[in-house]
């Protein structure tokens, strides 16, 4: 409810620049939230998540260049691409864990990056792709900031709902079980590779949907959206927002992107800010801003109950 109210208020009040900025937060936040399914619920720390997101973004951009920006078609392309790369990555990583998983996802993600970077005919190489056609839905052309922002908001809400339903479903519970007690899970007859593979597919599809919209915010896509440093950035956003809370992902991406956008206007040291906030979060708020806010809310509720 609060989220819907906030989105509509922003849509009415914010200007062109801010709406695009908010759309970017929502889209990146959606991708970070899909990473939360892996990290927060599966204990699978992937350094290759940007490859799912970025590959989907490129697929959507290339598809739009050749076949136009029909929204449903573009979303479908992104979801398919995200799920496909996730399936490849999933097939490789299902039997590994911990540092091996970290390194394998990093290697696979970088392979995708190398392909994107060197396949100049299709991807534009280091320059990326510019001049994309705007998205369209039926007779409407979604080129100005307001519809793009609303689209990103709908995507975020839908993805959040989907992720919640996944986590609450038996499959999501099994994922938590595989993180907490993998040996017991196999002793209960669960196939852990299967749980992980299915989760990768879901996370890839959500990241792919987010990736599909990403190029159309600024009508540009570049190779840095596939690079592992974006994967690491996503992890930073996730931790600041709160691992395992799902909605914290949006909070984290908002904080990170706000620092990047606003602090960098005043000083070159914005990365220092991000790093310090990140370290302080790890030291002081192990459950991130979402966990901190939740604790604050319950403390206030208790105080109010005491006064009453």
């Amino acid at each position: 409810m609060v989220a819907v109210a906030g989105l509509s208020a922003a849509a009415l009040l914010a200007g062109e620049f801010h709406l695009r900025f908010l759309a970017e937060i929502l889209i990146i936040g959606t991708a970070v939230m899909s990473l939360d399914l892996l990290v927060g619920f599966g204990g699978l720390v992937s350094l290759g998540h940007a490859a799912l997101f970025g590959a989907a973004a490129y697929a959507a951009a290339v598809a739009a260049q050749h076949l136009g920006g029909n929204l449903l078609f573009i979303l479908g392309t992104g979801i398919a691409m995200g799920a496909a790369v996730a399936a490849l990555m999933g097939a490789v990583i299902v039997r590994t864990s911990s540092l091996f998983l970290l390194i394998l996802t990093l290697l696979l993600g970088q392979i995708v990056w190398e392909i994107v970077f060197h396949w100049r005919d299709v991807t534009g190489g280091a320059d990326g792709l510019r001049g994309l056609p705007p998205l369209s839905f039926g007779p409407w052309v979604l080129s100005s900031a307001r519809p793009l922002f609303l689209l990103a908001g709908l995507l975020a809400l839908a993805a959040l709902w989907l992720a919640h339903s996944f986590v609450d479903a038996p499959l999501g519970r099994a994922l938590i079980g595989s993180r907490e007690q993998p040996i017991r899970m196999s002793a209960l007859g669960y196939s852990i590779p299967r749980i992980r593979f299915l989760t990768m597919l879901v996370a890839g599809a959500i990241a792919g949907a987010a990736g599909a919209l990403y190029p159309f915010v600024n009508l540009y896509i570049g190779p840095q959206s596939v690079h592992w440093t974006l994967s690491a950035t996503m992890i930073i956003m996730l931790v600041i927002g709160g691992v395992g809370s799902l909605w914290g992902a949006f909070l984290g991406s908002a904080v990170y992107l706000a620092i990047q956008t606003y602090i960098s206007a005043y000083t070159d040291r914005w990365q220092l800010f991000v790093g310090l906030i990140f370290v302080l979060t790890v030291l002081l708020l192990p459950n991130g801003l979402a966990g901190g806010l939740r604790r604050l809310a319950s403390r206030m509720r208790r105080r109010r109950a005491q006064q009453a």
Partner: peptide, 22 residues
Amino acid sequence: THLMQVLLTYGLSVVFADLMRW
């Protein structure tokens, strides 16, 4: 846990990277 170690030390490396750039 390894996850917390990874996060802490990666965060520090981000800070140090920017300090050295400075």
